[in-house]
Simulated scan of single mutants.
Amino acid sequence: MSPWLMLAGLGAFHGLNPAMGWLFAVALGLHRESRRVMWLSLLPIALGHAASVAVVVAAVVALGTIIDHGALQRVAGFLLLGWAASHAFFGHRHRVRVGMQTGLAGLGIWSFLMATSHGAGLMLVPVIIPLCLAATPARELTAMGSLPVSLAAIALHMAAMLAVTAAIAAIVYEWLGLALLRRGWINLDTLWIIVLAATGLGLVI
């Protein structure tokens, strides 16, 4: 599969996950009885998520200029495995709590912390690193050579995430309501832990 399609797919998966934002957007809109609030809340959610991903990608690229590609892959793999284990055992005990009275700035901070706690940026590392390597003639990570590719990768990921988040938020707000969650929902947290662990194992092995 194309790395760009994988980035878009991960963005769509993040958008599908209620913990990444659409649930909060819907709840905030219903609480304030405002469709406008629901739509406006999507912006800080997207920006907070993008900031979290960008911080992780920047740190990994910087680290990649110091150590070789193979070692960087193994480091990323062990981090993903550790994150999967932490999320599995402690994730539900350390939820970031934001009240319905929060403003857009608070919502952006919440989104940043939620994306970080889910390891959203780490999940993009196995896809972005090969793209950055392919973009340089010597196939080495450099800060300047990796910048355009990294920005394009984050932009694509965020576009897919925002599109899915907005679509689900609109459908739930306009037609389904939060009663949908009382009838049952796929446990996406469990699926995410499996994906994190499988990717980490793939990088280490």
Rank of each mutant, 00 (worst) to 15 (best):
W4K: 01
M6S: 11
G11E: 00
A12V: 13
A12G: 08
A12C: 10
A19I: 13
A19L: 13
A19K: 10
W22F: 07
F24A: 02
V26E: 01
L30C: 09
H31R: 11
R32S: 07
S34A: 13
R35Q: 11
V37G: 14
V37D: 15
M38W: 04
M38K: 05
M38F: 06
A46L: 11
G48L: 11
A50I: 04
A51F: 04
S52V: 03
A54S: 11
A54E: 04
L72T: 05
V75N: 04
L81M: 15
A85V: 15
A85N: 07
A88R: 00
F89P: 15
H92P: 05
H92I: 04
R93W: 14
R95Q: 14
R95K: 14
R97S: 10
V98G: 09
V98S: 14
G99K: 00
G103C: 01
L104K: 09
G106W: 04
G108V: 06
G108S: 08
G108H: 07
S111T: 03
M114A: 13
M114P: 10
A115G: 12
S117F: 01
H118Q: 14
L122I: 02
V125M: 05
I129W: 12
L133Q: 12
A135H: 05
P137N: 06
A138I: 01
R139T: 13
E140Q: 15
E140N: 12
L141S: 05
P148D: 12
V149F: 08
A153Q: 02
A155C: 05
M158I: 09
A160P: 03
L162N: 00
V164P: 08
A166V: 07
A170H: 14
V172H: 02
G177E: 06
L181R: 03
L181S: 11
R182Q: 09
R183L: 06
L188V: 13
W192S: 00
L196P: 06
L196C: 10
A197I: 00
T199F: 07
G202L: 11
I205V: 12
